[in-house]
């Protein structure tokens, strides 16, 4: 679904990746780790076409990224659910409207039953009509995850979705992601949370990738 081959990228003159390759396919569950500043967020931005590689090939659902028109980019993004590290809400809309936003802009109906279930699962049922600015950091992340999965995407990219969340709630979110993964969705989750990775490994076959020094490697088995 997402395929990077020999991708190079840097901001300005500063090279971040020289030669990165990865294939994320249906049913894959990958963790992305690495020190702060290694480029995890940048890697994700490449995957949802916010950035284009300088060299190498980046293919989404079989299409070369740099050949996509703006409309095709939009349609591709409708198949990728993203939890941004900084959440990215429309501050004038309520929580529930933000969660429904990908469906709204895609011209799709909002399945009310699913919305209700999802709001309960992420613990935001009581905050549905709040504005994003009225949420705590953890609540924002839960809302962002709800928005990412609401539109039933083929791929979910989550950038530290449990950064501000207590252990119990992050277990719930992991359960949700594992459930979606079992339905065939590809998941790439950037996190520093080793306990979360261990928890996931005990329940499903996941791979851990480590981004450091401009290279992407399979992490050791000691996790």
């Amino acid at each position: 679904m997402i395929e990077l081959a020999h991708v190079a990228f840097g901001y300005g003159k500063r090279q971040l990746f020289a030669d990165v390759s990865l294939a994320l396919n249906e049913g894959d569950f990958f963790f992305l780790t690495g020190p702060s500043g290694a480029g995890k967020t940048t890697f994700m931005r490449l995957c949802y076409l916010d950035l284009l590689p300088e060299k190498g090939s980046l293919k989404l659902f079989g299409n070369e990224a740099r050949d996509l028109s703006r409309d095709q980019v939009a349609l591709t993004r409708q198949r990728i659910g993203v939890v941004h590290q900084d959440c990215q809400f429309l501050e004038h809309l309520s929580v529930v409207e933000n969660i429904a936003l990908p469906l709204t802009v895609g011209g799709r109906d909002v399945p009310l039953g699913d919305m209700e279930e999802l709001l309960n699962w992420v613990g935001l049922a009581d905050h549905r009509n709040a504005l994003p600015a009225q949420l705590s950091g953890g609540e924002r992340q839960r809302a962002a995850l709800a928005r990412a999965v609401m539109m039933d995407p083929d791929v979910i990219l989550a950038d530290e979705p449990t950064g501000n969340i207590d252990w119990e709630m992050s277990q719930r979110l992991l359960t949700l992601l594992l459930e979606l993964n079992r339905m065939g969705k590809a998941i790439l989750l950037a996190t520093h949370d080793l306990a979360l990775i261990r928890q996931a490994k005990s329940q499903a076959s996941t791979r851990v990738l480590r981004l450091a020094g401009g290279e992407l490697q399979a992490a050791g088995v000691d996790l």
């Binding site: 949802y48 993004r77 809400f89 429309l90 802009v105 895609g106």
Partner: peptide
């Protein structure tokens, strides 16, 4: 920017 991130086409 947010609208584009969630897949809104220009025309929308």
């Amino acid at each position: 920017r947010v609208l584009r991130l969630v897949g809104a086409r220009d025309i929308v």
